[in-house]
Nucleic acid binder design. Structure first.
Lengths: 143, 143
DNA sequence: CTACCTGCAAAGTCTTTGCATTACG
DNA sequence: CGTAATGCAAAGACTTTGCAGGTAG
């Protein structure tokens, strides 16, 4: 169930880069790893507020930024006003956002990946990245 | 070359909804229609600054918002900090962003549209919208 | 003439930063 | 111990809003 970096592996990755493993960073990373959805900075802070009520939002942002730059975390904005964070290290995937509940479903479709590549080529570009988000509502199994 | 709303048609659309057609709105719409790329609010203001130096940024934002709600304009954020606007009414398309120049290329691929639909269904959802952005650099025709 | 629109400046979000203090390694 | 990290509050970037005056219809 843990195809992503484990917390220990994450700590090691930080140490290897000479980045200090502080209590704040551990708490934030644990919250991110345990989150079901892709939480925002505010949600991350809320998730650790009971055990670490004094961790500031600035530290959450700083930690996310640092981990993004280290390639350990990915940030998505999903068209809402604020960023959502996700522990990286897992296989590539895109997102389907439940327009009603806000739930985020991950998926990966090799066919669509291939098509994107082909489209970029057709337009004379070499693909360096992409963003694909589907928005939908749960299909009623017809009434 | 003008598969989108003409300026006259746009003015009529506003009148039909009881929205006043002011000099500011005309200028902003003309700038949007003539823009090559999908401009930001600041870029729109800059584009009309020589002939209408006193149109405020607030009015540009208000106009874009009004037109978005009227379904006449689309807003994209492209992952940068600020919104980009595009005159709607044309056929559906997605965007490829030149990571070097910022140039935006529009494309539409029926195959990829169909796949998105299929993916949503497979996940148990009815697709209500999507966002697809490709990021790339111009392909060298090999050295 | 009246209701809607505009400009200005102030406020609102989300995120980043300066600085003194704390703590990892 | 020394350097990097933290908390707090202030600043920044982008966008929205309150209000008094202006203008389309």
């Amino acid at each position: 169930m843990e195809s992503r970096l484990s917390l220990d592996a994450l700590a090691d990755a930080l140490k290897a880069r000479g980045i200090k493993v502080t209590a704040q960073r551990k708490a934030i990373c644990r919250a991110l790893a345990q989150a079901e959805n892709h939480p925002t900075a505010v949600e991350l802070r809320a998730a650790i507020a009971d055990r670490h009520p004094h961790i500031s939002l600035a530290t959450v942002y700083r930690t996310m930024r640092m981990l993004c730059e280290a390639g350990i975390v990915e940030e998505h904005d999903f068209g809402v006003g604020c960023g959502h964070y996700e522990l990286g290290g897992g296989p590539h995937h895109d997102h389907l956002i439940d327009a009603e509940s806000g739930r985020i479903v991950e998926f990966c479709d090799p066919e669509i990946e291939r098509l994107q590549q082909a489209i970029a080529e057709r337009l004379g570009y070499r693909l360096t990245g992409h963003r694909l988000e589907l928005y939908g509502v749960r299909a009623k199994s017809d009434a």
